[in-house]
Design a binder for these strands. Structure first.
Length: 423
RNA sequence: GGAGAAGUAGCGAAGUGGUCGGAACGCGGCGCACUCGAAAUGCGUUUACGGGGUGACUCGUACGUGGGUUCGAAUCCCACCUUCUCCGCCA
């Protein structure tokens, strides 16, 4: 969430930044009014509490001296009732303000291209060229089905639409990609591997911004009020929820493999075939905690770490900067990495790397101390896919397919898969 | 799932309705003294959030979390969370 003091003191510039997303002011004006109401109520109740505390100290002395406290007690009873009344109003105002703040997105960084949607995203760079074929290439769902390494029909039987079963070398390829990515990031990019719970509570989902606005997109487990993780960003970022970190440990890099669960509500009819849009997919996630002054450099190196996966797999890709209209709710700036997908005839998102500045940290209460004894400050949080595993497998199948229907295994994966070709 | 115990500052731990809860006491940390230096010793110091004030400062809140009783709650009552012990179940 945004800092209410910043909204109060720099209202016009915050308003302009939020409105650059092209969806109005997200109730920013309401938040400002609620804040004024809240502060007036605080002044009122604290004055009464101060009086209450002072008299409460006198009461035992009156009693000890054998005096009659009846009149004072009556006055205090009245005061106590008034305090309760004002406190109730204050709690209501604070809750309303909190709800209003949770509904306001992060302010896009000044470097983010202004635009209304993804058509105004800006391409920054490309690696490789779209794969050329001397034959008619097949989409990955046909390749996988023909090789009997992907089974969408049986997945539908045991679960439903938008699920996949990987078989044989298909399962091994998926596992190999996970291991390849984790090894790369932990051995060469300085990330510490985490294996987190795949279910999290409401506080964690709120900390990273999935709740309260996007509850309908998540799978919920009512028995314990848990949510299946939609991305490892949630357990990883919230690892340090409500903590004050030692500044010496920053920047701090962590990575995790998890399955990700998404309802994909509202995407009916889109990407219905194959591995691109499913209810459960594997992903390796990269998360960073950084000091404010270093977070923009950290965004560049995080994106570079994700790109490195595609470079080593020799998959063609490009990097785009999302425009203000396409930017995620909590993000101040996002680079999407898009891999070439022959069946789509275009580049498809395979990673989204964002700097959330202090937006998530404020929601989740993640702070740091520069020096022992220094005032705690909010950290900056960043994350990016490193990468989406199912989409990586789809891209491998499509870009590495051969005319005879087999798929050659990328050099970097051969010793993981234990085969040069899947046939 | 059942029974019991516990949750107080960085750690350990006292406090069973007020008059020492920022909080006893011990350890740790920091500063000073002593010392050539260190250890030992002595003295001092040590939270976070919010409101008001240019500021010195000041007021409020916080004893796992959320409610309740009371003029007043760490203390009494209710619910929940977490940890530990035992029983049951289980990969």
């Amino acid at each position: 969430m945004l800092d209410i003091r910043r909204i109060r003191e720099e209202y016009e510039s915050v308003k302009a930044a939020v409105e650059s997303r092209g969806q109005g002011d997200f109730g920013l004006a309401d938040a400002l009014a609620l804040d004024a109401e809240r502060r007036a109520l605080i002044a009122e109740t604290e004055q009464m509490k101060s009086r209450q505390n002072a008299v409460s100290k006198e009461i035992p002395q009156i009693k000890k001296a054998g005096g009659d406290a009846t009149a004072v007690l009556a006055e205090m009873k009245e005061l106590s009732d008034k305090v309760k009344e004002v406190d109730a109003k204050l709690a209501e105002a604070e809750e309303k303000l909190r709800a209003a703040l949770l509904g306001i997105p992060n302010t896009p960084d000044a470097s983010v291209p202004v635009g209304s949607d993804d058509s105004e995203n800006v391409e920054l760079r490309r690696f490789g060229e779209p794969t050329a074929f001397g034959f008619e290439p097949k989409p990955h769902w046909d390749i996988g089905t023909d090789l009997d390494i992907l089974d969408f029909e049986r997945a539908a039987k045991i679960a439903g639409a938008r699920f996949t079963v990987n078989k044989g070398l298909g399962a091994k390829l998926e596992r190999s990609v996970v291991n390849f990515m984790l090894n790369l990031h932990t051995r060469e990019h300085g990330y510490t591997e985490i294996l987190p719970p795949f279910m999290v509570n409401r506080a964690a989902m709120t900390g990273t911004g999935q709740l309260p606005k996007f509850e309908d997109d998540m799978f919920h487990v009512p028995a314990k009020d848990f949510f299946l993780v939609p991305t490892a960003e949630v357990p990883l970022t919230n690892l340090y929820m409500d903590e004050i970190l030692d500044g010496a440990m920053l920047p701090h890099y962590i990575t995790a493999y998890t399955p990700c669960f998404r309802k994909e509500a509202g995407s009916a009819g889109r990407d219905t075939r194959g591995l691109i849009r499913v209810h459960q997919f594997n992903k390796v996630e990269l998360v960073k905690f950084a000091k404010p002054e270093e977070s923009w450099d950290e965004l560049e190196s995080l994106t570079a770490a994700a790109e490195e996966v595609l470079k080593r797999l020799a998959l063609p890709y490009r990097v785009v900067a999302l425009s203000t209209g396409d930017l995620g709710f909590s993000s101040a700036k996002t680079y999407d990495i898009e891999v070439w997908m022959p069946s789509y005839g275009r580049y498809v998102e395979i990673s989204s790397c964002s700097n959330f500045t202090d937006y998530q940290a404020r929601r989740a209460g993640i702070r740091f101390r520069r020096e022992p004894g220094a005032k705690p400050e909010f950290v900056h949080t960043l994350n990016g896919s490193g990468l989406a595993v199912g989409r990586t497998v789809a891209a491998i199948l499509e870009n590495y397919q051969q005319e005879d229907g087999s798929v050659s295994v990328p050099e970097a994966l051969r010793h993981y898969v234990g085969a040069d070709v899947i046939r």
